[in-house]
Amino acid sequence: MTVYLEEREQVVPERVSVPDRFVRLAEQRAAEGDVRRAQLASWAADVHVLEELLWQNGLAEADDPVAQLAAVGESVASALEQLAECATGEITAREVLEAARKAMVSTFDASVHDVLMEQLTALDHLDSCDPLVASRSDEPADGARLEGRSPERLVEELREAASDCLAVARVMNREGEEEAGERLVHQADVAAFEAYLVAAAVHAGDHQLATVDLRWSLAGDLDPASWEPTGGDNTFATLRRELISIVGSAEMEALWFALESAEGP
């Protein structure tokens, strides 16, 4: 992860929706011949679109939005399992995603099926994927990240790293090294962000941490040096907001709390 404060000025990033960012990632993976990750990134775009539509149409007012999303996720998973049982013969990478979309949409009332499908992004990038070519992502996604540790241990280490960065940052600020201190504060945010992603993935049943890799890739694409100066927040505050924007609306408050909690009392 190489995202950090490049210079102390007011900036704003290019505004690109999260689904579009996932599609860009899917296009990149497809061009590399990484079929599985191209499909996962495409599916992540679909899920994000669905979550935001639900959020805008009443989910935000639910007593427990996360539980409601979990219930929707279970329905989609059940529909996908039924689809897999009925599948016969070889299907292309694009057909897999199209079938998954139909399974997802089928969990809602028929009156909104067309509306939901219209909101989903194009899948043209999957046409170049050869399902018979072994993907470079066949190995579990969690191996390199965990390095033999349990997810829980990794989360603990990342939170400790965030706390340590902030402790040193306070010392740097007292000594007048404000720029160095701000860099450390952002490193703390990055560590707390990764800890949140891992913990959220495990909580959601993603024990291979595939969702962590996807979201981490989006965060890694943030490039403060390319942003144009403008009025508003400084670079550090803008970067924190951009990290939070990567997750869905239902998670933003939890991620903000995780970043704030790293700062301690």
Rank of each mutant, 00 (worst) to 15 (best):
E9G: 12
V12C: 06
P13C: 06
V16Y: 07
V16P: 00
S17K: 05
F22W: 15
V23R: 00
E27Q: 10
Q28A: 15
R29V: 05
A30H: 10
A31M: 06
E32K: 11
G33L: 14
D34T: 07
R37P: 00
A38W: 04
A38I: 03
L40F: 08
W43Q: 11
W43Y: 11
E52Y: 15
E52M: 13
L54Y: 02
L54G: 00
W55Y: 10
Q56Y: 08
L59S: 01
A60C: 04
A62S: 03
P65I: 04
Q68N: 01
A70T: 08
A70G: 03
V72W: 10
G73M: 09
G73T: 13
S75G: 15
V76R: 14
A77H: 15
A79P: 03
Q82Y: 14
L83I: 07
A87L: 09
A87E: 06
A87I: 05
T88L: 10
V96Y: 15
A99C: 13
K102Y: 03
T107L: 04
T107A: 14
T107I: 07
F108K: 11
V112Q: 14
V112D: 11
D114P: 01
L116D: 01
L116I: 14
H125A: 09
L126K: 12
D130G: 14
A141T: 02
A141G: 01
G148C: 02
R149T: 03
R149V: 02
R153I: 03
E157P: 00
A161I: 02
A161M: 06
S163G: 05
S163A: 13
D164W: 04
C165S: 03
V168I: 05
M172P: 00
M172H: 06
N173M: 11
E175L: 11
E175W: 09
E178Q: 09
A180P: 00
A180E: 01
R183T: 12
V185E: 14
V185R: 10
Q187S: 11
A191P: 00
A191G: 02
V198H: 02
A204I: 06
A204P: 02
D206C: 10
W216S: 08
S217H: 10
L218T: 06
A219K: 15
L222Y: 02
A225N: 03
E228V: 10
P229N: 09
T230N: 14
T230Q: 13
G231T: 10
G231R: 15
D233C: 12
N234G: 12
F236V: 11
T238P: 01
R240I: 06
R241D: 14
R241A: 14
L243D: 00
I244D: 11
S245D: 13
I246A: 07
F257Y: 05
L259W: 07
E260Y: 05
